[in-house]
Design a protein around this nucleic acid. Sequence first.
DNA 1: CCTGTTAATTTTTTT
DNA 2: AATTAACAGG
Length: 848
Amino acid sequence: MDLFDQLIMNESGSDTGSGEFAAKEEKSSVSERLLDGLNRQQSQAVQHQDGPLLILAGAGSGKTRVITHRIAWLVQVKHVRPSSILAITFTNKAAAEMKSRIEALVGHVSSSMWIGTFHSMLLRILRRYAERLGYTSHFTILDSDDQQRIVKQCYKELSIDDKKFPVRMVHSRISTAKNALTGVEQFAREAGSDFVQEKVAQVYKLYQQILKQNNSMDFDDILFEAVRLLENNEDVLADYQNRFNYILVDEYQDTNHAQYKLVHLLSAVHKNLCVVGDDDQSIYSFRGANIQNILDFEKDFKNCTVIKLEQNYRSTNNVLQAANAVIKNNRGRKSKQLRTELPDGDLITFYRSGDHSEEARFVAREIVRCAEKSTHEQPYGQIAILYRLNALSRNLESALREQGIPYRIFGGTRFYDRKEIRDVLAYLRLILIPEDRLSFARIINTPRRGIGDATVAAVDAISAQTGMAPLEVCAKSDRYPELARASGRLLLFSEMIADFRKKMLADSLTLAELIEAVENDTGLIQEIIDQQEKSSVSDSVDRIENLKELLSDAVEFNSSYIEQLKNVRENPDIAAAEDLENADETLPSVLTSYLERATLYAEMDDDKDQDYVRLMTIHSAKGLEFDTVFLIGAEEGLFPGYRSLESEAAIEEERRLAYVAITRARQKLYISTARSRLIFGQTQAFRVSQFVMEIPAEYLEEIGGSRESRAASHEAYANHSNQPAGRARVQFPGGPAPAAGGRSSTNGFGNYTGSGSATGNNSGSGRFGQSGQMSPVASYTNSKPTADKKQGIDPSTLKRGDKVKHQKFGVGRIEQITPVANDAILVIEFEKQGIKRLMAKMAPLTKV
DNA sequence: CCTGTTAATTTTTTT
DNA sequence: AATTAACAGG
């Protein structure tokens, strides 16, 4: 993170020339520096005085620059107290970037500004006043996986059939209700006699009870409860209203009702609310975002100033015109027309492939070509492949590997969401908070330890009767005849947790050491190793590597946490001080912060300087830009998705998504489709996306067949030799048209043999936790005295056939060594006990 | 009560 | 296609 900050600072530092410049020109130079290079609208936005301000910032219009410069302007020219500035973003990444860019402009005073996401900033407030809402200040935060589990739990208690009421659907309705600030009672009232809504209302009610009982809030509660807090507590509201003289909200088009309400409440006194957004980039309505918030801003705030940023500095003219042409088909939008002074640039390349693997190979080959002719030091780092659904990334992987292209996939299941990681986190949470029911339920039988559903149900029943936490029931299980049979195992479990807890409270371990102890002593790793022999698809290596990765993550966290603590002590007035009010260096304190970050800050970070192709959904590409963009899967039914085909509003959202995708490209845009594609378990034929049809021909070149009109599509599909139509018109840049697709179909099957082996998994340079960029696992133990001495053997000293001696199993011979992180899985045939799988460094082994 | 097998269901996008 | 739920056998 520090490195990242530094990079940003250097970058912005050089383009504003802070140092000598300011010294020379003295006074007015400050404002000159902040306005330098801005166009009229931008500079007007930066200098706007007081009162509501709406900045409609088109894609690539220098939005971030305007925001950061405006904040700097407020501080340095208007002498606004930094601590009275609140800047809200949607992602932690955006917040971090804004923070460092502002710091580059104004220096360390930026640290007393509140810059963060809605969730992080509200959490700060909620912790302080938790008691007023009926929580303790240590309430835990539940992510959507936890939410679904609780809904399922509700189903059991209410005996609701999850076939008739899909968990997903009910969960999302509850979430929608909260985002619309509809509480339990109101929801029940409005449900009326609607059968489905009535059931949802029942679940909602019980769901909230369970959360309260657990002293936890889900993601949506953070917004909901914050509104409740402010509305019902005048003193609190007044405090924050007065405190935040200037409020700035980025990506305003993505706010939902609760967020809208919050912004209104907080800005009501000073009315210095500046919102920045682009209605054309509103793509989160499925999450409750209401595009009306930005469209109605002028109505909501009388005498508000509106500034449109329509000058695009990012894309070539061809790309930009294509984007304009697509988005103008939307009806519900503020009229604007982006323009650029950049040259036309290359035409957009449209490629119609036969099927998905041909598409993937085309993309891979084009990337190689791009990289070869690129003058950039890091040719791959400037390339992105975007798609509508995560599922589409699969096809690309093998093609990219074949060409030896370094890549990394973003999104999908996030690191902290992986099963094995969540298991460890659940242990940690239970160790920290023995009353936690959710974590208990998750891990009581993970790994398998002979405690089945029946036993868990009995424990729950006793817990409900006596009011004891489930873990406590386990500890006293010998007192209950109904638990007699499982009592031994229950006691063992509770003692194990108690033992961990003792160690934690004694503060004799580092965070990483505690995690390592959990991973090893609970048998989590052993279970994964044991599964290796059974399951045909061996992902054990990946999963263990993830667990090792968690260790280095913990080390990293630990040191940055300590540093931040130090920082706060030296400057008590920085904003982060409120988060760390009662924090210290002890393990319980560190662990508390760590768990919170794991739920709230679950994004993978991306080093901008890494030279690999980035694969991500369009959603996660918002706010980013790349020299070259490949948009794949541009097919009717995929993009726009078939679920949105019925509703005009949904199509418009998809179109906005298309607009976002197109405008990510700086210089070159490829759009590709497949005539048929294997997806959702079957091969389907697809037409070209209507969004592609909306791009005027003058901005396109076509390869592998034209985008046929609807009428022509049958005919074209009939003569599926993709030779004729497209080929004639192809102007393949740089040479005689190579048979980009159709010819080499042998490859389509060729890669089958290549995959499957362990090497196949590792050779991909892409996946999280495998690439060299992650910090090495080696050094995760540090200063504090280690509680238990390391055992085992360094795997690098071992080879097949070596004899080893195990404390319990006796002497055995090594049959197989599978490297994992900096350790290895050993398959050992013991003379007496048979074949066992063990981690080289962890097992009590000695060389013979 | 666990385990391994079969059947069924699922597929946006994410703070 | 792949993950997850139900089911039967030990």
